[in-house]
Structures are given as C-alpha cells and as structure tokens.
C-alpha cells in the first residue's frame, strides 16, 4: 500500500463531539414532533434524520477525509434512489 493512500486519523474528540451533536439532534427531533405541526411533522422528522445521516456519512464513515470518489458515488446512489422514489410517486400522486 503506497503512502499517498495513508488515512487521515480522526481524533477521539471529533467523534465525541459528533456523537453529542447527533444525540442533541435526536432529542430535538423528538421535541419538534411533539409540537403540533400537522402534516409538516413527518417532513421535520425526516429533515432531522437527513442531517444526522449526513454527519454519520461525513465523519463516522470518513467521507470528509476520503478521496472524492467515495463522496461522488454516495451522492449518486442517494440521488438515484430519490429519483426512483420520485418517478414511482408520479404514478401514485396522479392516480
């Protein structure tokens, strides 16, 4: 293995910090869904979930430190999934 592929070592502190952030976000999302937002409840909960998974992907899964290839692939797969979901919904929304 050549040295240019040497990994960036993430400090314990960063991980703990992210963990605290994630737990705060979880509690916040529970809090926010208790407020009466009607149909926006789900949207709010999902936005929090999206932010959380972004942190997991970028820090825990090292996308931030790795080669751009991984980021691009992950982005592509998520977009593809949402595109498929969107196209499926074209049918159901208009039926």
């Amino acid at each position: 293995m050549s040295s240019e592929e040497k990994h960036h070592i993430v400090s314990y502190k960063t991980y703990l910090f992210i963990l605290l952030g994630l737990i705060t976000l979880t509690l916040l999302s529970v809090g926010i869904t208790n407020i009466e937002l009607r149909e926006y409840t789900v949207a709010a909960a999902l936005i929090f979930a999206a932010i959380k998974s972004y942190f997991v992907l970028y820090y825990f899964m090292h996308l931030k430190y790795d080669k751009p290839l991984y980021r691009r692939m992950a982005m592509f797969v998520f977009l593809l999934f949402f595109a498929v979901l969107f196209v499926t919904f074209i049918d159901y929304v208009n039926r």
């Binding site: 529970v30 789900v42 979930a49 997991v56 992907l57 899964m61």
Partner: peptide, 26 residues
C-alpha cells in the same frame, strides 16, 4: 476494522431513518 465500521454506520443510518418513520409520526 474500517470496513466493519462502515457497515456498522450504515446500520446506524438506516435506523436513523426508521426511528422517525415509525416512532415519531404520531
């Protein structure tokens, strides 16, 4: 270890979405 980590975080991400979809839509 890194790969197991990646796998484990994936399981985590899936739960991150399952949690609001099943528990938080009351």
């Amino acid at each position: 270890l890194e790969n197991s980590g990646l796998y484990w975080h994936l399981v985590d991400i899936i739960w991150i979405f399952l949690f609001p979809l099943f528990y938080l839509i009351t």
